Amino acid sequence: MGARVSIAVALLLRDGLVLLVHRHPSRRWYPDCWDLVGGHVKAGELPHQAVGRECLEEIGVQVYDPVPIPMTITDPALDVHAFLVTRWDGEPVNLAPEEHDELRWFRPGELAGLKLAHPAGLPSLLSAVSPGLG
């Protein structure tokens, strides 16, 4: 197996709601499912820098103080760095329609009913947003 792909993702939390993006059905990897905002960590970039860049590129927000959170995934090809984000400037909008066909705020209790890109990560995400739920 080759080198693992480093990914940085953001769990944006506002008023108890979690922002997810719906991956476009034509995407090669994880099509037609809900996921956190994020993407590849570029060469020479640290994961927290990548998550800030991805949030700006994909949803037009400048994030502040991303806090690392654990996230379990089952894809051995990925090295995922997840961050909880509670402070940002701007209102999230879909700036990457070729990647996502929708973005939506969800209550934590709604996440289990969704088709998620990384369902194994759900307990760790829930414990980050609502301790005791995960």
Rank of each mutant, 00 (worst) to 15 (best):
S6F: 07
H24T: 07
A3F: 12
V18S: 05
V80L: 13
L36Y: 11
C55L: 09
C55Q: 07
G60E: 03
L133M: 15
R107H: 14
A120F: 12
G38M: 06
S127V: 06
R28Y: 06
A43H: 14
P76E: 07
E110Q: 15
L95H: 15
M71L: 15
V51T: 02
Y30H: 10
V61T: 13
G39D: 10
A10W: 08
F83P: 02
R87T: 14
C55T: 10
P68I: 00
H24F: 03
T72G: 02
W105F: 10
L125M: 13
C55I: 09
D35W: 01
V129N: 10
V63A: 09
F106Y: 09
D15R: 05
S130W: 15
G132I: 08
G121W: 00
L84N: 06
V37W: 03
L114K: 04
L12I: 07
A10C: 10
I69L: 08
V21E: 02
V61I: 14
E98M: 05
L111Q: 09
I73M: 12
Q49S: 09
G113K: 15
L116R: 08
V93T: 14
Q49C: 06
L126T: 07
L122N: 05
E91P: 00
A3H: 15
E99L: 15
L122D: 12
K115S: 12
G2E: 06
H118W: 08
W34A: 03
D75C: 11
E99R: 12
P31A: 04
L13I: 10
Q62H: 14
E54G: 02
L103D: 01
V67N: 01
V21Q: 02
H100P: 01
G52W: 00
T86S: 12
H24P: 07
W29V: 11
D65V: 03
G121L: 05
A112T: 13
Q49V: 08
P68D: 01
K115W: 03
L84K: 10
M1D: 04
K115G: 05
L95T: 03
D75V: 03
E54T: 05
